[in-house]
Every structure is written in structure tokens, then in C-alpha cells.
Amino acid sequence: MQEDNTNSLKVMVIDDSKTIRRTAETLLQREGYDVVTAVDGFEALSKIAETNPDIIFIDIMMPRLDGYQTCALIKNSQQYQGVPIIMLSSKDGLFDRAKGRIVGSDEYLTKPFSKDELVAAIRMHVA
């Protein structure tokens, strides 16, 4: 049952910062998206199977499983390799962007991000 595109879209936000998770969740819910959050890569991997997100935002610097490792694991999975992944980082370095591309991320946003940047990324990557 697909409703209007925005309402049925599931967005996952993976970040070890409660503030970032809450901010992204609030901004995206106001736009009508269904938001799922995870504290780290391990929690995210179990939640992905349950929720089947349409797009995933991943923080790079996280304990246990960082954003690059999490992205690579998702992209290596037959079932989820088509899900767009947007890396989130406080560092705006060329090396970080390149590494993100290597593990299969679709875009790279620098923190602090704006609501417009999040929504633009979703619109660009989810038809």
C-alpha cells in the first residue's frame, strides 16, 4: 500500500550522538518521513532487516562498527545493496569522501547538516 511518496518513505539515521539522532529524526518526521534510528552499526544491522529502510544516513565516527564498515556490510548484502547510503561526518576531507565512495556510499554530508540538505539527499536518491 503505497501512499504519497513522502509518507511511506522509511529513513534510517545511524549515529552514536543522541543529539544528532534526535535532530535528524525531528526534522525528517516534520517532513512526513518514517524515521528509524540506531546508535551504532550493530544495532543498525539488526534494525535494517526489521524495517527495510528506503535510505540510510550513517555517521562515520562510531564505536564498535564505524560508518565505513557498516556501509560496506550493507552494500555487500544482496538484499540491501540498492539502498542509498549517505555518510555523515564532521570532517569535510577529500580522503573521507573518497573512502566513503570506496565502501559504496552514495553521498557525503558534513555536520552540522540542515533540514534542506537531508531532504535534498532523500529526494535525489529515492525516486
Rank of each mutant, 00 (worst) to 15 (best):
V83D: 07
A121N: 04
T19E: 10
S114I: 06
T6A: 04
D16C: 02
E31G: 08
T37F: 10
Y108L: 09
T37H: 08
Q29C: 09
D4R: 09
A120R: 12
D59S: 03
V39P: 01
N7K: 08
A49Y: 04
H125W: 15
G104C: 08
R101A: 15
D66A: 02
L45Y: 04
D116L: 07
K18L: 08
I14T: 06
D106V: 09
L73Q: 00
D66C: 03
D116Y: 08
R64V: 02
S105F: 14
A127S: 14
E117V: 03
K99N: 07
G67M: 01
T110V: 15
A72Y: 05
D54G: 07
E50I: 07
P112D: 14
T26Y: 11
I122P: 02
R101T: 15
V11K: 04
F42W: 03
R64S: 01
E43W: 11
S17A: 10
G100P: 00
G93K: 03
G82T: 04
L28M: 05
S77C: 11
N5T: 11
I85P: 11
P112E: 10
T110S: 12
M124A: 09
T110I: 15
R64N: 03
Q29D: 05
F57T: 05
D106F: 03
E25T: 11
V11Q: 02
E43L: 07
K47P: 02
P63D: 15
R30K: 12
I56K: 03
D96C: 13
K111Y: 06
D96T: 10
Y68M: 05
Q29Y: 09
L65W: 03
A120M: 14
Y68I: 11
E25D: 11
R22C: 10
Q78W: 01
P53V: 15
T110A: 04
S90Q: 13
D66H: 06
T51Q: 12
D15C: 00
T37W: 09
T51M: 06
K111D: 13
D54C: 04
Y68T: 02
A121M: 04
L28K: 00
A38P: 11
R22T: 15
A49F: 04
Q81G: 00
I86A: 14
F57A: 12
F113L: 08
G32P: 12
A24R: 09
G32D: 15
K47F: 04
E3K: 14
T70S: 05
K75S: 13
A24Y: 15
K75L: 04
G82V: 01
P84K: 06
K18P: 01
E107T: 09
R123S: 08
K99Y: 12
F113P: 06
A121K: 09
I122G: 02
V126C: 12
A24Q: 05
F113I: 06
V36Q: 04
R30G: 05
Y68W: 07
A120I: 08
F42D: 07
K91P: 00
L94Y: 08
Q69D: 14
D15S: 04
D34W: 07
D66T: 01
Q78C: 01
S46W: 10
I74Y: 00
D16P: 00
Y80P: 08
A121Q: 11
G93P: 02
L109T: 06
C71R: 03
P53F: 12
K91W: 09
T51E: 14
V36C: 08
V13L: 15
L118P: 07
D4S: 06
L9C: 10
V83R: 01
S17K: 02
D54K: 00
I14C: 03
N76W: 13
L94A: 13
A98V: 15
